[in-house]
Amino acid sequence: MTSSHTISVLVDNEPGILARVVGLFSGRGYNIESLTVAETDAKENLSRITIVTAGTPMVIEQIKAQLDRLVPVHKVRDLTVEGPHIERELALVKVKGTGDKRVEALRLADVFRAKVIDAKTDSFVFEVTGTSDKVRTFVGLMESLGLVELGRTGIVAMSRGGEAL
């Protein structure tokens, strides 16, 4: 019954807003799988929060209603149920190694269309973007090739088509 949902929340960019959202999740025992937040409209002073959460349909409905009830929240949209949408994530992947392993890492990076954004003679930092599944797969491959550090942004998402949030 439990399923994963990607929820976009448009909020006032004000101090404490993230604490309100995160506090709601921890206080009511909801789950956060991924969370991203940044200002998206400087003129209107709005931020967009993208939350990936999991729960039964009743819990997901509650999460949305509880988010909508927060005073600085403008809009709550469940992208998972409201038609097709796209999700992207960015990761920085640091791989250390020499010889064959280094060549193989570079070759695979090419296959995954990851960019080299830093290089030393014995290391690379790759920037890879895509679905979480693609990022996970790439990181998995790097594990045996000298993965030493990983940073992920979490998911940002948007509905397909011309309609705005």
Partner: peptide
């Protein structure tokens, strides 16, 4: 008046 009260405990 509070949508979060609806379907919280009882469907």
């Amino acid at each position: 008046i509070d949508p979060s009260s609806i379907n919280k405990n009882v469907r």
